[in-house]
């Protein structure tokens, strides 16, 4: 113990061992972190690409390839790597034809935010698919928005036409009480999970109202820009 105390005394008089230790550790940890970051970065990027492609092919039937675009006030432009903002994905089938457009939507659900991806089909001007990306809804109740077959069937052809002005949807997408769906733009809620169902409707409506009018003039551009 005496050796320890002597060392203790010395370090009190001189701060250099402390600087040396902290500096050395900082160098070492910086080196290790950068090393792991460099090694794993391509793998993580590949995983993310695969995850996005898998989600896109769920919401756009037949899509095998995709290109990402950023929606801006002045139109669409190809997304750069790691870009944030309003990203949409144009999905192309195996012949290179435009199969649909996927976009993100989010709304507050019962427990926390629900994040989803939906596919818009320019031919029928409707939403063809919806996939929940992330949620923490109550298991067995709210999380049925992901699994309930009747609820998922709402998104086989959910009407999302624009009105004559082309600036908003002809009919806003709404969630209606279970069993009272009358129109193709309505979503039939799950009974017992009304709040979660409504959140999906709200998210889709908000996202479609905002993005589709901006995308619509450029559908032909998307058709031509094959991946």
């Amino acid at each position: 113990m005496t050796g320890h105390e002597i060392r203790h005394q010395q370090t009190r008089t001189s701060p250099w061992p402390m600087f040396a230790a902290l500096g050395g550790i900082a160098m070492l940890s910086g080196f290790l972190v950068v090393l792991v970051y460099q090694v794993t970065r391509p793998m993580i990027a590949r995983n993310q690409r695969q995850a996005i492609m898998a989600a896109i092919s769920r919401v756009i039937p037949g899509a095998v390839r995709n290109r990402a675009f950023v929606v801006t006030d002045s139109g669409l432009r190809p997304a750069k790597k790691g870009e944030t903002g309003d990203i949409i994905y144009a999905g192309y089938d195996k012949d290179g034809k435009l199969a649909g457009i996927a976009a993100r939507a989010a709304a507050q659900g019962y427990a926390d935010m629900i994040y989803m991806l939906y596919g818009y089909d320019p031919k029928c001007r409707c939403i063809r698919g919806m996939k929940v990306l992330k949620m923490t809804e109550t298991p067995g109740l709210g999380d049925r928005i992901k699994t309930d077959p009747a609820f998922v069937a709402n998104f086989e052809a959910l009407d999302a036409r624009l009105d004559e002005s082309g600036r908003k949807l002809a009919h806003p997408i709404v969630t209606v009480k279970h069993g009272s769906k009358r129109h193709p733009w309505e979503i039939d809620a799950i009974s017992g999970a009304t709040i979660s169902s409504r959140a999906v409707g709200k998210a889709l409506n908000a996202s479609a109202q905002r993005l589709l009018p901006k995308i619509a003039p450029y559908i032909d551009t998307l058709r031509e820009s094959k991946p």
Binding site: T11, R12, P17, A21, L22, I25, S29, V36
Partner: peptide
């Protein structure tokens, strides 16, 4: 490691390894 800065050093070392685990898990399964 001098006694006075030991906790700081330990925390930096631990944070380094946790960051490594974090990236490794991302690389294995998203």
């Amino acid at each position: 490691i001098p006694r006075q800065v030991r906790i700081a050093t330990y925390i930096v070392i631990i944070a380094t390894f946790v960051t490594m685990v974090d990236y490794t898990i991302q690389a294995i399964s998203l």
